[in-house]
Computed example of a mutant assay.
Amino acid sequence: MLAVGLALASALFFTSSYVLNRAAANVGGHWAWTASLRYLITLPLMLPLVHWQGGMGPVWQAIRARPGAWLGWSTVGFVVFYMGLSYAASSGPSWLVAGTFQLTVVAGTLCAPLLYDDERRRIPWQALVVGLVIVAGVLLMQAGHGGGIDRAGWVALVVVAIAAFAYPLGNRGLLLHLERNAGRVPELNATQRVFGLTLASQPAWIVLALYAGAVSGPPPVEQVWMTAGVAVGAGIIATVLFFQATGMVRDKPVPLAAAEAMQGSEILFATVIGVLWLGEAWPSGRSLLGAGLVIGGIVVFSWIAARSATADEREAKALRSARGR
């Protein structure tokens, strides 16, 4: 129960990405500032955390050994991922973005054939079925929002779907790189990997910040504070809570599945906070049904993933890494 409680708390803090990004868009903040500021602020905030969790030395050694891999996977897993979430924030309510991003729950499994050349490239049929249910739920949510005729909303759906696949692809790609270079690069824990990806992505964020300044001028003060809130809430607090929760029950399939399934509550948190704070409309009709399908699919998929992960330490490692956002 403690692990589930910590996972639920982490979902609440992860929700800050959707709600505060939407709030930043509402005050006129450019999406490129929202994306770049979050990771420019996160890097110094992570310094004391990574010092406590193994130090920066092994991270820097691993990056220097294979800089191309770190630059490439950080671009996929962090830059493409968060640019998509930030761009979509102005196109629909926070619950819609939160619900669509839950595609990432099955995206890691569906990306397996692109990464692995061993037994891990197999996609379980159960995962495919549950994935189709989640996709159907996302489409219902979008169809119910604005009567399904909001062109910007459908563009945002595609963008968030790309982000949902880019995130686990980048994280699992880095894990595979470290696995194949074991013995030649230091072994890194989850916090060190997240810090390394954040550090390696900094050139891209600096370029994006220069672009944001050129097209929109300096960011509003409110946007800076909101992105700092995301950096602390989602980037630090939520990540630590989730790693702690899943680490406590990593060898117990049922509690692990329950902890993983708590990410479905992000839709509920985003809905309530968006309605009460941002004045967004409650989901109804097809959108409400779609949200229910997404949450139900997450619960079932978490059970399937937890059972297989406890039998395969490499897959468990991928699952733990896939939430360092």
Rank of each mutant, 00 (worst) to 15 (best):
A322W: 02
L20W: 10
G264T: 08
G148P: 06
P48S: 01
V194C: 04
V272E: 06
G217F: 08
A231H: 09
I237L: 14
Y39Q: 07
A23Q: 10
Q126P: 00
T109W: 00
G235R: 02
W95C: 10
G68E: 00
L2D: 08
A88T: 04
V160D: 04
P48W: 00
A204F: 15
G279W: 12
L20F: 14
G233R: 02
W205Y: 13
R325L: 14
K317R: 15
L268R: 00
A112P: 04
G108F: 02
T109F: 02
V105M: 13
R250F: 05
M83L: 15
F101N: 13
L20M: 12
L115A: 10
S17Q: 13
Y18W: 04
Q263A: 12
G297M: 10
A89N: 03
R151H: 13
W31D: 03
V294Q: 07
L43T: 01
T246N: 11
L128E: 08
G99E: 10
G108L: 01
R172K: 10
E260F: 15
G292R: 09
G279C: 11
L139V: 15
W33F: 09
W277E: 06
D118K: 11
D312W: 03
Q53V: 00
T246V: 15
F195D: 04
D150P: 05
R38D: 07
L157P: 04
A204Y: 15
Q61L: 11
V135Q: 11
L110P: 03
L139C: 12
N21T: 11
G213E: 01
A164G: 10
W70E: 07
T271G: 03
I237F: 09
R120M: 02
G137L: 08
A112D: 12
L199D: 05
P219C: 01
G285P: 09
R64T: 10
A291W: 05
R22D: 01
G296K: 06
V207G: 10
Y87W: 14
A24I: 01
I237E: 05
L278W: 09
T15K: 01
V207T: 12
P186A: 07
R307W: 07
R66Q: 13
E179S: 13
A318R: 13
L256F: 14
D118P: 10
G146A: 13
A3Y: 07
G233Q: 02
L40W: 06
L20D: 02
A163G: 14
A311Q: 14
V79I: 11
R193Y: 00
Q223H: 05
